[in-house]
Write a protein that binds this DNA or RNA. Structure first.
Lengths: 209, 209
DNA sequence: GTCAAGAAAAAAACTATTCTTTATCTTAGT
DNA sequence: ACTAAGATAAAGAATAGTTTTTTTCTTGAC
C-alpha cells in the first residue's frame, strides 16, 4: 500500500488505559484539579504517552464528556415512559462503578471551556428524554396538557442534582434509590394513573441479570 | 485597655473586597482553577493581604460556601408551600448578580474537600425546605400521604440541576423562569388543588419592589 | 530470520505559574 | 513618638502543561 495506516494494538490498549485513568482522576479532582502527570502515573505510563495520543489535557476531557450518552444502554427494550425510567436507572447503576460516567458527572460545569454548547451533556440527555416523553404522549400514558419539554428538563435537572447530593452524602452509593424516588414523586403529576401503576423499577431495570 | 482588640475599619473593607473578588473568581473557574494571585489582583490588593486575612485558599472558599443560606431572605413573609417557593425564587433572582451565591453554586462539588459533611450547602437547603413542607402539611396544603422528605430532596436537586443547565445554556439569565417551571411541574403532585391554585410566582416573589 | 523505517512510549527539559512564607514598609491609635 | 495592625514586595519550593530528545517496540519487505 502506498500510504501507511498502521494502528498497533498496543496503542489501542494504551489509549484506553489513558482514558480510564483520566476519567478516574477527573472524577476525583475536576478538570483544573487533575494534573496530566497524575493521569499518566495512574495509567502506569509517562507524560510522553499522554501527549502522543492526545494533543492536550482539554482534548482528553472532551473525549470523555462527549462519549457519555452512548455508554448508557438499558438492558430491556422498552418504550415511552418506561424507557425514560430505564435510561435514568441504568445511568444511576452504571455510574456506581464506571469512572467515565463519574467523570462526566464531575465535569458538568467545566465542560463549558472545552465542549461546544450544542454537544454538552445536558443537551444530549434532554434530547433522549424528550423523545421518550413524546413517545409516551402518543401512547396516551401522559395526563392531558402536560408540558413535555418542561418535564424532560426537570428530570435531567433532578438526576444531575441527585447525583451531586448522593456524591456528597453517601459517595454515590444510594444514587439509584434517589433516582427511583424522583420518579415516584413525579409520576402522579405526569402520568395517567393507569400508566403510572404499570411502571417498573428495581435493580433489574438498570442492570442486566 | 489592657488587651488590644483593635479592628480597623480599613481591614473590614479589605476583607469584604477579598471575599467578593474570591467569589467572582471561584464562580468563573471553580476551586482548583482559581489562583490566589488572580483573586488578589481582582480585589486590587496583593498576595500578602490575602494571607493576612485568611490562612489558606481553602479557608477563603469555606467562608464563602458556609455563608450561603443566610444570604437568601425572601422579601415577603410567607408560610408553608408559598415560603418554599419564595425561598427558591429569591435564590434564583439573587443568583443573577450576587457573586457569592454564584460561587456557592460553582463550588458544590469542590466543597467536599474543605467543608465538614454536616455543613455542606445541600444539607442547609434541605433543612429549610423540609421545615416548609412540614409546615405546609400542618396547614393541609399537601395531598395525603406525600413523602415530605422525598419532595424536599427533589426540590433541592431540581434547583441545583436547573442552575447548571441555565449556566450552560443562557449564562444563568433564565434561572428564575426555570425554577418557576420546576414548581409548576411539581405542584400537581404535592399540593391539593385548592392550595396549588393559590400559589404566587413572578418577580415580586423573589425581589423586593 | 534479518533489518530498516516508522510508530509508540520513555526520559528529560522548559517556561510559567502554583500556594505559601518572609521580610519590609505604611498606616492608625494612644 | 511608639507600637501593633494592616498591607506590600519579594522570594522559595513545588508542580503545572507542554515540547523536545531519546529509546524501545512493531511491522512489513526482503
Amino acid at each position: 500500500m502506498a500510504v501507511r495506516e498502521v494502528k498497533q494494538e498496543r496503542a489501542a490498549r494504551t489509549r484506553a488505559a489513558l482514558i480510564r485513568a483520566a476519567a478516574e482522576v477527573f472524577a476525583e479532582s475536576g478538570f483544573a484539579g487533575a494534573s496530566v502527570s497524575r493521569i499518566a502515573e495512574r495509567a502506569g505510563l509517562t507524560l510522553g504517552a499522554v501527549y502522543f495520543h492526545f494533543k492536550s489535557k482539554e482534548e482528553l476531557a472532551r473525549e470523555i464528556v462527549t462519549s457519555q450518552p452512548d455508554l448508557v444502554v438499558p438492558p430491556q427494550d422498552s418504550h415511552g415512559l418506561q424507557h425514560a425510567i430505564d435510561v435514568t436507572l441504568t445511568w444511576a447503576y452504571q455510574l456506581l462503578d464506571d469512572p467515565v460516567l463519574q467523570a462526566g458527572a464531575r465535569l458538568v460545569m467545566d465542560q463549558e471551556h472545552f465542549v461546544p454548547k450544542s454537544e454538552n451533556s445536558h443537551q444530549q440527555w434532554m434530547s433522549i428524554l424528550l423523545r421518550d416523553f413524546r413517545d409516551a404522549q402518543v401512547r396516551r400514558e401522559l395526563r392531558l396538557g402536560v408540558d413535555v419539554e418542561a418535564y424532560a428538563r426537570l428530570v435531567v435537572s433532578a438526576c444531575t442534582g441527585a447525583q451531586m447530593q448522593a456524591q456528597l452524602e453517601t459517595s454515590r452509593s444510594d444514587l439509584p434509590y434517589r433516582v427511583e424516588e424522583v420518579w415516584r414523586c413525579l409520576l402522579p403529576a405526569v402520568a395517567v394513573p393507569s400508566a403510572a401503576k404499570k411502571m417498573q423499577f428495581g435493580r433489574e431495570r438498570g442492570v442486566a441479570e
